[in-house]
Every structure is written in C-alpha cells, then in structure tokens.
C-alpha cells in the first residue's frame, strides 16, 4: 500500500510541501510537552538559581547573598569531598561498564543459539530490577550474617573483606553499579551492531580480515555514536550518585557519611537541617559541574558526531 501511495502526482507533493512550511499545527503537538518542560524543568532551574542567591539566618531573616553561597559551596570541604568521590568513581566505573557492555555485545553479535539468547536476557535483567533492590541484594550478599562471601571465606579459613567498610565501599559500590547498568548499555550497543549491514563483514573477510580485526576495526567504529551516547548517560548518572549509597548506608556501619556524595549532602542539608537556600546552591553547583563535564567530553569526541551535532 505504501508503494502505491508513494506514486502520488508530484505537483500535489510540491503544493503540500509548501503548505507544511507554514503549518503551525505542529505547535499543538508539542504544546503538552512544552507545558511540562516549563513547569518541571525551566521553572525549578530558574527557581533554584534564584534561591541560591539568598541566605536565611535565624536572626537576620532572608537576605540577599549574591554569590556567597557558591563561594561557600566550592570552599566547603564536605561538598569538595563528595564531588571528588563521584569524579573518581566515574573515572573507574564508566570505562568498566563500557568494557563489560561492549565485550558482551560483540560476543552476542557473533555467537548464535539458545545460550546466546538466554545470556542476552540475563545480562539485561538487572535493568528491570529497581536500583534500590539491586543495592539491597548486593548489600545482603556482602553481609556477614546472610551472605555467601563470608561463608565461602570461612570454608577456606580466610577472613572475608567486608565490602561496605570505610576502605572497601568504593569497590562494593563499583560492583553494584556495574551489575545494574552494564546490561542496559549492552543492549544499546547490541541493537546498534545488529543494524549494521552484514555485507560489510563479507567484504572485509574477502579482503582477508580476521574476526578480531572485523570486531575492532569495523564494528567498534561503526557503533561509536552509541558508545558516546552511553558515556554521556553514565557520566550524568554517576555524578548524581544517590540511591545506592543512601540505601546501603544503614547496613554499612557508618561508611556512608551525610556528605558522601554531593546529592546526598544536598538532600541532608535540605531535609535534615532545613537549609534550602544552601542546598539549592549545592544542587546548582553540582548541575554546573555535570554540564561542564558533559560539555568537555562532547568537545573531545566531537568528530564522532552523536545526538548533539
């Protein structure tokens, strides 16, 4: 049916094209989104900016503070410590996730059969598990009273490391986040790999390319825009780190401090100490750092051309 309709007379097509150029009905289609966008993105953003310029004291009331909250935020050891933690964490967790996702996707693109289909679903499965529960399950597995880590260690007569202790929580969280998100990234890369025309591989094979060369010289460059997209998503997500440490906090014996990450810090400032102005400044500063990190990253990978070109 599509084919017959495509053969519409060209004169009509030209006329309707011209009419579409001045068709304001498009606004009606995007209007509901624009309302939500204005109410829940622009308004809070502007309001946070406004709030952060004021300060509220018990004796003095609300007074205009200019950029005082920001100089305070960037000089605040709690904020700096949290920021340093999420930056350090991103630098390790993002490459780790991408490597796991990319290797799994390349293998799944190559191997067929029941095991491959089953693995694809199993690796993706954690995405369907709420983050709170993913963190909790690993918390249980780490714990000395229910977890197998302790039991296996006892069987071999060694002391098990408690992965949520002060020194180990970085690795404990690294594992939780990798488990939770690698499968989702794997599916995005896998979908991109599947949509490559396989005649390219045939041509490469005729030219004498090995399987490994095809994977790294053809497949990886061809999915680079998917990789850039994933990198940006995981960067934005990791810098806002909140749920996993917040959930593991109660069972981590004090490793998760109230200023563990910038988001946890802002949350505690607002809801434990009712410092909404300063909390807004912290949120805004974090947002600024995220924006800056993404912008730097995009300039660095500009040639790859992703969604923002």
């Amino acid at each position: 049916m599509i084919d017959t309709l495509r053969e519409a007379p060209s004169a009509t097509t030209v006329r309707t094209r011209r009419r579409r150029a001045t068709r304001p009905t498009g606004w009606l289609f995007i209007l509901p989104f624009l309302i939500v966008f204005a109410a829940f993105l622009l308004a809070p953003l502007i309001y946070a900016g406004y709030l952060s310029l004021w300060t509220k004291g018990l004796a003095t009331g609300t007074t205009f503070a200019g950029f005082d909250n920001y100089t305070r935020a960037f000089g605040d050891p709690s904020f700096r410590k949290g920021l340093w933690f999420v930056l350090k964490f991103s630098l390790v967790v993002i490459p780790l996730q991408i490597v796991v996702a990319l290797v799994a996707a390349l293998v799944l693109d190559e191997v067929t059969g029941r095991l491959a289909r089953f693995s694809r679903l199993v690796i993706f499965l954690p995405y369907a598990v709420p983050v709170v529960l993913g963190a909790l399950m690993w918390g249980f597995l780490y714990s000395a009273s229910f977890g197998p880590v302790e039991q296996i260690a006892t069987a071999f007569d060694v002391r098990a490391p408690f992965l949520l202790s002060q020194g180990n929580i970085f690795y404990g969280l690294l594992n939780v986040v990798t488990w939770q998100w690698s499968g989702y990234y794997m599916i995005i890369i896998y979908a991109a790999l599947r949509s490559i025309d396989s005649s390219i591989y045939e041509a490469a094979r005729i030219d004498g390319a090995s399987g490994r060369q095809i994977a790294f010289r053809i497949k990886v460059p061809m999915v680079s825009s998917a990789l850039v997209l994933i990198l940006i998503f995981s960067l934005i997500g990791t810098l806002q780190f909140f749920t996993e440490p917040q959930i593991l906090g109660p069972i981590a014996n004090g490793s998760v401090t109230p200023d563990f990450t910038p988001n946890i810090y802002a949350f505690n400032l607002a809801f434990r100490y009712a410092q909404f102005n300063y909390a807004s400044a912290i949120s805004f500063s974090l947002g600024f750092v995220v924006f800056l990190a993404v912008a730097i990253f995009m300039v660095a990978t500009r040639k790859r051309g992703s969604i923002f070109t």
Partner: peptide
Amino acid sequence: PLTALVIP
C-alpha cells in the same frame, strides 16, 4: 541532571 531539580 534531573535530580538537581528535585529540591527546587
């Protein structure tokens, strides 16, 4: 970052 908007 959408969580930065939660408090405002």
